[in-house]
C-alpha cells in the first residue's frame, strides 16, 4: 500500500541544496514524483515542496532522514486538511481552423485555463490547480492532439496565518 506524501521542507538557501535533497531520496530508494524549489520571503531560506509516493510507515523515516541534512531546517507533512496546494500546467494542443479553436476555448472557459500563445495550427494553454484537475484537463484536451506539455509539480502552503519560518528564526 503506497500513498502520496507532500512535504514542505525549509532549507538553507545555498548552492548544492537541491542536489543534497535529491541525492538523499535516490540513495535511500524513496520515489520523488515532483520537487519544486523557490526562495522564501527570507532570502536566507528556500522552500521545497516534495511530492513522493511511499508506504505510510516510511513517512517518519523520510522526514527524519531529511532533518539529518545540515541544510534542512524544518519539514512539515502536508495534506488537504492542513494545506493548500497547486500546480501549473502548460499544454500545447493542435487547433487548426476556427472550429477547433472555438472548441478549445470552450473547454478553457470551463476549467478556467488561459491561452498563452496562438498559431495557425496550435494553441498553448495554461492552467493551475490540483493534480487531479490538471489530469482531467489533459484528458479532455487529448482529443484535439497534444503537441507537448510541461507541468511544474505541486507547490503548497500550510493553511492559517503563520509561516514555516516562524519558529525557525
Amino acid at each position: 500500500m503506497t500513498e502520496k506524501l507532500i512535504l514542505a521542507a525549509l532549507v538553507k538557501n545555498t548552492s548544492g541544496t537541491l542536489q543534497r535533497v535529491a541525492g538523499l531520496f535516490s540513495r535511500r530508494g524513496y520515489n520523488i514524483d515532483s520537487l519544486t524549489v523557490c526562495e522564501t520571503e527570507d532570502p536566507r531560506f528556500s522552500r521545497m515542496t516534495i511530492v513522493c509516493t511511499t508506504q505510510p510507515e516510511y513517512v517518519r523515516q523520510i522526514c527524519q532522514q531529511l532533518l539529518k541534512l545540515e541544510i534542512v531546517e524544518k519539514v512539515v507533512v502536508l495534506n488537504d486538511e492542513n494545506a493548500v496546494g497547486s500546480e501549473l500546467l502548460l499544454v500545447k494542443v493542435k487547433a487548426q481552423g476556427i472550429d477547433a479553436k472555438n472548441a478549445v476555448l470552450a473547454l478553457n472557459q470551463k476549467y478556467g485555463a488561459r491561452v498563452k500563445d496562438v498559431t495557425l495550427k496550435s494553441m498553448t494553454l495554461e492552467l493551475t490547480g490540483t493534480a487531479d484537475v490538471l489530469e482531467e484537463f489533459i484528458d479532455k484536451v487529448e482529443q484535439y492532439g497534444i503537441i507537448e506539455l510541461a507541468r511544474t509539480g505541486a507547490t503548497a502552503l500550510e493553511r492559517g496565518e503563520h509561516s514555516i519560518i516562524d519558529d525557525v528564526i
Binding site: E57, R60, Q61, Q64, Q65, L67, K68
Partner: peptide, 11 residues
C-alpha cells in the same frame, strides 16, 4: 542519538 535510526531497520 540519531532519531532517524528509530524504526529504520526494525520497528
Amino acid at each position: 542519538i540519531d532519531a532517524a535510526e528509530m524504526d529504520k531497520n526494525l520497528v
